[in-house]
Amino acid sequence: MEMVDDDGVYANVEELQSMKSTMQERNPSNSPDKQHSGIRIYRLTAVCLGLLTVLLLIIITAISIHYNGVLNNTTESYSTQSENLTQLYSALKDERDQTDQLHH
């Protein structure tokens, strides 16, 4: 409520200031506790992101090791199969040559 005289206006301003200070005491926006909890949240977030990064690196390393093992096994398998095919081809060629000599 505003009063026309200066005393009433100043009284209302003082009342508003006292209400404002009471509100700030109840819910301080820049209190040290709130700032400290904000820092904790950022630290917790940074630690979680760091742990996720380490976990991701471990998973990538494990997959790379597994992939290299599979690749080596596949290469050995192809090499063995290639040798077997070469031997079979050579054996068939020898048999063909022998049968050609018998017929002539």
Rank of each mutant, 00 (worst) to 15 (best):
E2V: 10
E2C: 01
V4Y: 04
D6K: 09
D6R: 08
D7P: 01
G8S: 01
Y10H: 10
A11K: 02
N12M: 05
N12Y: 06
E14M: 08
E14N: 10
E14R: 13
Q17R: 09
M19A: 08
K20P: 06
K20Q: 11
T22A: 14
Q24Y: 09
N27I: 07
P28Y: 01
S29Q: 15
N30R: 13
N30W: 02
P32A: 06
K34F: 01
Q35L: 14
Q35M: 15
H36F: 13
H36K: 13
H36P: 04
S37C: 07
G38P: 02
I39V: 15
I39R: 08
I39N: 11
I39C: 07
V47F: 12
G50Y: 02
L52H: 00
T53C: 03
L56V: 05
L56Y: 04
I58N: 02
I59R: 00
I60H: 00
A62C: 13
I63F: 09
S64V: 07
N68K: 14
V70A: 09
V70P: 03
L71N: 15
N73I: 07
E76Y: 04
S77W: 04
T80S: 11
T80V: 08
T80Q: 06
S82W: 00
E83I: 04
E83V: 03
E83G: 00
E83K: 09
E83M: 12
N84C: 10
L85V: 07
T86E: 13
L88A: 15
Y89G: 08
K93M: 12
E95P: 00
E95L: 02
R96G: 01
D97K: 11
D97R: 01
Q98G: 07
T99W: 12
D100P: 00
H104R: 13
H104I: 06
